[in-house]
Each structure stands twice: as C-alpha cells, then as structure tokens.
C-alpha cells in the first residue's frame, strides 16, 4: 500500500452536505472544553485530588477520530482521558463524580482521573503508565477478529509514550498479526510536542514519529490535529481500511495542549508564554467555528447556545459530584480476588 506522508488539510467541498454532523462535533468539542475548565477549577478548589491532566487544545484529535466510533469498537487512552470518555457517551455527571472520588463515579471512585473506565460505552480505560496500554489495544484488536466481528480497537497515546519497551513490543506484534488480518487497530499519536516537559526532539531520536511505524509494517499518516475536518477525513479513511483488512493503521495528529502537563505544572519552564499564546491562535474550536460560520453552516446564535449548554453540562456535573456521597467503605474490598 502506498503511504502518504504529507500533512493533510481539509477541503471545503461537501462540508455543507454533512452540516448536522459538524454541528454535533462542534458541540462535543465545546463540551470537552467547558468540562475540562471545570475540572481545573475544581482541582484548584481542592475538590479533585491526585493528578489531573486536561485535554484543552487537543479537542479536535479525539473528537475527529471518535466520530467514526461504532458500537462494539473498544477505545484505550493514556491518563489524559476525559475527552475520550465524554465522546463515547459516558454520563458527564458520573465522570465528574469519579474525579471527585465519589461512590457514584463511573468506577465507584476507585479509578479517578487517570483511570476513567466505561466498558458499556466501549471505553476500556485510561492508563497511568505511559505507553503501557498499547499492548492491551493490540490484544483487544486480536480478540475482536478472533470473535469474527468487524469492530476495531482505537488506542490514543502521546508522543512521550513511544519510547518504552512495550510500545515496541505491542506494535511489532500488531504489525505481525495484521499480516493475517488479526489486528484491526487504529493507533493515534497525540503528538502535542512534549513528553511532560521534554520536547519531541529531546526525547525521540527520530522526530518523524509516524515513520517509526514503518519499522512495524504499519501504514501511517500525519494530520493537522487542530483541524477537526482533516482529522475526521483521515480517520474515516483509516477506519474503513482497518475494518476491511484487519490490519493496524497509525495516525500521527500534530496538536498542542494549552494547559500544563498536569494541574501541578504551574511554571512550565520548558516552553515560553509566547509559544503558548501563538499556539492558542490555532485553537481547534475557534478554527472550526470560523470555518463553519464562513460556510454558513452555523450561526453565532447557535454557537452561543452550544456554549451555554456546555457550560450548563459542566456546571451540573460539578453540582452532581459535589452532592454525591463518598464511596461506601465496603467498596474498598470489592472487585478484587
């Protein structure tokens, strides 16, 4: 198969034809943004404990890709996992309650921000060991084919997850199994430029991250991760191929996180304020709104309504979480051998 290495942009044709779909995608991106702002606020208020990593700035990646989600697909992510969970249809109230460590959180308060989990909605976990979950996705992909389904596994991970041993082991096996059509997996590099505070050119010998997949015979393409139209177009194409062939595929989405690595990343000595401000000019939500209003697919009023609705969803989630009871002490010893 011929591989295209250039970064894909989105063409303007046929946007109008799928107007309803774009509106849904925009609405979801705004919900993610408001939800993440709320989580940061609640962290500052001391309501959310532990580590907190938000998706602000990267919304177009998960939203564009998971727009292709079909019932039966399974999705994996690292610890920056709120967006994926929301996109798959988990109850925002249950997610926020989980972040608050409450008993009616989606994992009964036993996972928290880094380990969101909602198997009923296809989300098989946020994982806190960087790069440790790629093997899981490869195995799930195998299982989906073993059970003769057309479902696929989607695995999100950051550029920082590409340097541990199990990354290599997972992709080698995925490429190998893909040869016999036994690994329908989409690997998504959320390349936000930094492994925590270590820039890509300081952590990876080869800065063309997608090209690393060549070594495993896994086709790979890059995309502008701030352009949701481009992400979505590539995802649709890739996912169709994966479903058809049972072979893995890699999308390298080049994106940027606006917040710190985690909520405790205050000083951010690894990047300048100017750099962040510059990147914020390419806010994926703003870019999408501009484009859709130019194309007259959405009106300013519609956007304002979406903003208000998103604000309300986030606010309601916080109130719900706040009022929720702590986990029953008996939860300590459940769900274990």
């Amino acid at each position: 198969m011929a591989r295209k290495k250039e970064t894909h942009g989105s063409s303007t044709h046929a946007l109008a034809a799928r107007a309803a779909e774009w509106k849904t995608i925009l609405r979801k991106m705004i919900v993610i943004r408001r939800f993440e702002e709320a989580t940061e606020r609640e962290f500052r208020r001391g309501k959310i404990g532990g580590y907190l990593h938000v998706y602000t700035g990267q919304e177009a990646v998960a939203t564009g890709i998971l727009a292709t989600y079909r019932q039966g697909d399974v999705v994996y992510a690292g610890y920056r996992d709120h967006a994926q969970t929301l996109l798959l249809g988990s109850d925002p109230n249950g997610i926020m309650a989980e972040l608050f460590g409450k008993g009616n959180g989606i994992s009964h308060g036993k996972g928290g921000s880094m380990h969101l989990f909602d198997a009923a909605h296809g989300f098989y976990g946020g994982y806190g060991i960087v790069g440790g979950h790629l093997t899981l996705a490869a195995g799930s992909a195998y299982a989906l084919r073993y059970k003769e389904t057309e479902s696929i596994a989607v695995c999100f991970f950051g550029d920082g997850a590409m340097n541990i041993g199990s990354f290599h082991e997972a992709l080698n096996m995925a490429g190998l199994w893909g040869r016999s059509g036994m690994c329908p997996a989409l690997f998504v590099i959320e390349n936000n430029g930094y492994a925590m505070g270590t820039a890509v050119d300081r952590h990876s010998a080869l800065t063309d991250l997608g090209a690393r997949f060549d070594a495993y015979a896994i086709p790979n393409e890059k995309v502008d991760g701030q352009d949701v139209f481009a992400v979505h177009a590539l995802a649709e194409r890739a996912v169709a191929t994966i479903r058809e062939t049972g072979r893995p595929f890699c999308i390298e989405a080049q994106t940027y996180r606006f917040s710190g690595h985690g909520a405790a990343d205050i000083l951010q000595p690894y990047r300048s304020k100017n750099e962040v401000e510059e990147q914020k000019q390419r806010d994926p939500i703003r870019l999408m709104i501009t484009r859709l209003t130019e194309e007259k697919i959405v009106t300013t009023e519609e956007v304002e309504a979406m903003e208000a609705e998103a604000q309300q969803i986030a606010q309601r989630a916080v109130e719900y979480a706040e009022q929720s009871p702590q986990p029953d002490p008996a939860e300590l010893f459940t769900d274990i051998v």
């Binding site: 500052r44 208020r45 404990g49 909520a263 205050i266």
Partner: peptide, 11 residues
C-alpha cells in the same frame, strides 16, 4: 478569589 491548589499535595 480562592487560594488555588497548585500541586497534588498542596493543602
């Protein structure tokens, strides 16, 4: 204006 939590262990 609240005293914000800036780190995981900040009280």
């Amino acid at each position: 204006i609240i005293m914000p939590k800036m780190g995981d262990a900040m009280t």
